[in-house]
Structure formats: structure tokens, C-alpha cells
Nucleic acid binder design. Structure first.
Lengths: 117, 117
DNA sequence: CCAAGTATGTAGTATGTACTAAACACTAAA
DNA sequence: TTTAGTGTTTAGTACATACTACATACTTGG
């Protein structure tokens, strides 16, 4: 997978192709950071932004928050909290799911959602 | 649930009841920190230690690592990495599991382990 | 009672996180 | 040709994290 900076730049440039509102400066202004900072993040000259800033970026660029956070080396604080509430249980489950293919995990998601538990 | 400091002190004092090697000084020496630091952590006068230090503590006190990390507001880095590899998928699953009772989650763990997927 | 071991108080530090602020250099339109 | 917008460079900052080092005070077995 691409690193955060590369991914952000690519996405922003794509949006910018049909909308000039997606310049570094204007995106930065909308999400509340300095353009110089966003520029550095996109080029990997700066560590990934905070969770709050990544959330605003995800919204502005219409991207999946959990994905952007992951690229920034972070995990959504609401997920972290859920895990911390039952650490041993979730740790066991997640480690067991590490090698399962996507479709198998998705099947579990669906079963849980259907209430078969 | 108790906070990290209280929990650590309780556990250490319990061990110390039949083994003088579990004084603040001696535990601190074994896990490689200053006794003053461990003392402050146990009394909640200091922020939780790093993941590495919590791991050494867990081993010395024979405690569950994921639990101590959770009490310290952290998530094991290996779990974080597993989640970051498939962020959207795991995010969905974990949020769906939030309200499931322990026994239901355990059933999933067992099914995954039995290879019924 | 005193010496050894115990816990704790106070002060300070190195590194990382998450940015800001201002200036600079380029491009294209009016 | 200047001005409005673009991205970038450089320098610096406020706060958090994760401790250390040393001094002080308590406690308990011999």
C-alpha cells in the first residue's frame, strides 16, 4: 500500500482536476492547518497529522476515515476504546483473525449483523 | 475497573505477601526503571509507562499483557498492526462486536479457531 | 537502637508530536 | 506587468511522553 503522503497527494490532485477548490492552500484552509504543513505531509517531510486533523482531511477529500488513520499509523479512538474495554477477549479474536481472508471476516460481520449470535 | 496504578499496587502487594522480592525497589530494578518512577505510577502520580515497560511489568508480575496495556490506555502494537492492515474491514467488525456479550464473542473465537471458515 | 531496606518527594531532561509563521519562488490571467 | 493564486523552504514553538537522579523519611528485623 502507498504511504499516507503519496495517497493524499494523489487523491487531492485527482479531485483538483475538475475542481480548483482542491489546491493545497484551499484544502488546508478548510481543514484548519497551514498550507506549508499540508504540503510537507503530502511529501512525507512531516510525521502524519493527528487523528482530529486526519478526520477533517478524510471528510474534505471524501475518503474512508479508518483507512486514512491506518495510513497515518493510527487507529480510530472509538475502536481503541472498544478493545480496551475487553482487552484479553478482543486481543485473542483479532490475533486469530490475522490470517483469515477478507471474505471469511466479512462472513462473520454479516452473521453478527444478522443477529445469529 | 480499577485504574492502572491501583491495580499494579494491589497485585504487587499480593505477591509481596509471600515473597520479599516484590518490593517497589526490586521490581523496579528487574524491569529496568527507577523505584521512584514505579512508585509514582502505582499511586497515579505519573502517566502510564510505555508499552515496553508495561510488557516487562506484566511478565514480572505474571499478569496479562493486553489487560495491563488496556489499563494504561494502550493497545498492543501487534494488534494495532493487524487492524491497520485491513482498517475498514476490522473497523466494521469491531464496531459491530461492541454490544455483543462475552460469550457470543467467545463463540466466534472458537469457531474461527476450529477452522469453520 | 541502629542499620538495612523500604517508599516517596522534588527537580530536571531528552525525545517526540503536531503543528505555526513568515518568506520565497513560480505560473497564468487581466 | 502586476496581481492573484500556486506550492515550498526555513525556522521555530507549545505541549506531551517517558523517564532519571538524588535527597528525604519511614519501618522493621537483629
Amino acid at each position: 500500500m502507498a504511504d499516507l503522503g503519496t495517497y493524499l497527494r494523489q487523491k487531492r490532485e485527482t479531485l483538483r482536476a475538475d475542481d480548483p477548490r482542491y489546491s493545497v492552500r484551499q484544502v488546508a484552509a478548510r481543514i484548519g492547518v497551514q498550507p506549508s504543513y499540508l504540503s510537507k505531509v503530502e511529501r512525507g517531510h512531516e510525521a502524519p497529522p493527528s487523528e482530529a486533523t486526519l478526520r477533517r482531511l478524510a471528510e474534505d477529500l471524501d475518503e474512508n476515515v479508518d483507512m486514512l488513520l491506518a495510513l497515518g499509523g493510527k487507529i480510530s479512538s472509538d475502536l481503541a476504546q472498544i478493545i480496551r474495554q475487553r482487552p484479553a477477549l478482543f486481543a485473542e479474536l483479532i490475533r486469530d483473525l490475522r490470517d483469515l481472508p477478507d471474505h471469511a471476516v466479512l462472513r462473520i460481520v454479516r452473521e453478527v449483523r444478522d443477529g445469529n449470535w
